[in-house]
Design a protein around this nucleic acid. Sequence first.
DNA 1: AGATAACCGAGACGGTACGTCTCGTCTTGAT
DNA 2: ATCAAGACGAGACGTACCGTCTCGGTTATCT
Lengths: 207, 207, 207, 207
Amino acid sequence: MVGDMHSRSPAVRSGRPRSAEADAAILAATREALVELGWSKLTLGDVATRAGVAKTTLYRRWAGKNELVVDAVAELFDALELPDCGSLAADIEGVVLQFAAILALPEARSGLMAVVAEATRDEALRERIRASVVDRQKRLVLEGRARAQARGELPAEEDPESAARTVDLIFDMVAGAVVHRTLVSAEPADEEWVRSFTRVLLQGLGS
Amino acid sequence: MVGDMHSRSPAVRSGRPRSAEADAAILAATREALVELGWSKLTLGDVATRAGVAKTTLYRRWAGKNELVVDAVAELFDALELPDCGSLAADIEGVVLQFAAILALPEARSGLMAVVAEATRDEALRERIRASVVDRQKRLVLEGRARAQARGELPAEEDPESAARTVDLIFDMVAGAVVHRTLVSAEPADEEWVRSFTRVLLQGLGS
Amino acid sequence: MVGDMHSRSPAVRSGRPRSAEADAAILAATREALVELGWSKLTLGDVATRAGVAKTTLYRRWAGKNELVVDAVAELFDALELPDCGSLAADIEGVVLQFAAILALPEARSGLMAVVAEATRDEALRERIRASVVDRQKRLVLEGRARAQARGELPAEEDPESAARTVDLIFDMVAGAVVHRTLVSAEPADEEWVRSFTRVLLQGLGS
Amino acid sequence: MVGDMHSRSPAVRSGRPRSAEADAAILAATREALVELGWSKLTLGDVATRAGVAKTTLYRRWAGKNELVVDAVAELFDALELPDCGSLAADIEGVVLQFAAILALPEARSGLMAVVAEATRDEALRERIRASVVDRQKRLVLEGRARAQARGELPAEEDPESAARTVDLIFDMVAGAVVHRTLVSAEPADEEWVRSFTRVLLQGLGS
DNA sequence: AGATAACCGAGACGGTACGTCTCGTCTTGAT
DNA sequence: ATCAAGACGAGACGTACCGTCTCGGTTATCT
């Protein structure tokens, strides 16, 4: 996960190699600083100090605060997995609760919206977020649908293009609702709320 | 709209009054700077210059960048109105399209997510956003429901607490989905998408 | 002395005026740092701290380390005066001793040669040194000659151009010898040495 | 020129015996960098690159920038020789002109004063300069005096201590005047100036 | 009419973080 | 057993904004 961020291996690699530990220490320090200070008061100099690393080492690997925070936050989403609770509704509730739990972490709350905001004016950053964070979640929607189709809870798709649009719609609805509930309304996305939300969503889709 | 931001308490006010034009010029300059520079590169000194105003004047009226941008962006949402298109579905589609149109404006895209991100660590800012931006939209949900009930499209609620929860859920789903579609997925929330979304939503609610 | 360095008075002066105390504090701090650290280890950030001033204040007034050190060192030469000891030889000995005493100060030793070295590649800096340091000394040569002519120790010049060349030669010989003795040979330019030097010089000129 | 070293014989032992040529390449690169960049902008990393050498190799042989530049500049003074022009005055004029010619080289101008400045706070550096640069010149004064005594232009010395003091005085006067003329007054030490200077000096000494 | 009070522009101030540069040291792999 | 290549911790650089503080001057209302 860390290794493939700055990978370019032009056949030979001369000189002292980059420290692998530094990457881990920097990302951990970034999350720590996000918790304590939040996005806007986080400084790269402070992160470097926390990681026991020189500022130059940090700039050698990341282009700036945005890229660093995306990587640091993205690791939090590695834990997401689609649980097998026996029914589509239960599976969805499970994964939405996991998603909500991550968004409840201060290191995610502080950083995620900020980089999304920055990404509105930075195509490369938007792509990095999509690759590191969003696609990792969208995969779960695809898995869930496949499993529900295997169970017979959902019919098989006929038009693949329309199916892709539906996946996108579901994803925007799920992620959007949880994010808005958590960060804008500032209310917890607890079990009760997730159950209500899932019921509406499934009933809406179950045409 | 502008006047009530800096509340007047002590009945009488001696001395030279604050320039009303300055407020409007500053907010307009803020939006202009948001479009050109985006949130993170926007500086209060630059806004002051654009508005033809001294930095001091700006700080006298707003506590900082966050508060200023909230006010500047909030004005954009003044235009939101619940259209009367004859049916609940059409009304919702209309208002969601309006909302999507505002989020498509660069001055909103740049600023809104950023202040929401800041608000995760600033209760007062969160309250200001709620008052200036969110409640202004939530009102539309309430109006829509009342109108649909009058039309007979929806039954009258019995439990007011449960009704409030439903309104909150709808609001998080609508706003969240549009925001996510627009800012994270970076796809336009166009008529087609809005129609699909509204269908799912209404069918999900129409239990 | 300080005031005329950054003087520009475009009729009106708007805004808060620059602090006069800051100039003095900065120059004193510069000399202090020169004594403790020497030119190459002197940093503008450290000077600012010593002076109780922000780095920006320093950069607002001086273009860089070189200009600052020239001004700081130049003040040391304000003390130079041509003594009236009754004879040309005694006058010269007196002023050379004063000059040697200044060059014996660590703040002058450290800084002066360094800025001269820098000036070999910076015409503006060379001009600044000439104006602030060199001309202040050359004036003494002119006064000394005038006084000696009044005394009858020297004949009046006939060709003013040739006279100017002689003044330049004398100046390069005096300043050069003292500087070389002090800074390169690293021997004190004490009374005995000054007497020997003055004897050779006067006898060489007394054609 | 540097590249040829790589084609050298494999030899029996591992490792490459290029050290002697590396020295020359580094010193030449140093002078080249002095001409292009001047003392203060010269960096050891840049010198290493120009010499086609690793920074490590450079630090293995010199303690730092000062020592390197002293050695690089010192080589320039190897060319100094006492000409035999038939008379003391002519000999002195010749050698002073040579000295002035070296000081007119940008690699000497940039570097020499700077290391002298550094040497004011570094006894070891001062000693290195004396050994590499100063004594090489002072030798010429001694030779010149011996030759003049052989010619009968100067009487033999009686008191050796007083004679040493005189040599030092002459040396400070000659070197100081030329350096000051060249670097501070920034005027060329051309033939006319050298003639005037030599006349004053010799007449001053010829008591 | 004059006083009083709060406003206004301009811009200097003490700070803080930026992102870059160079330092001198320390691994690496290749020769 | 050296070398080039280059990453490393350290720390100064000069710049940009921050939010505050004088300045001299300008409106307003309240005597």
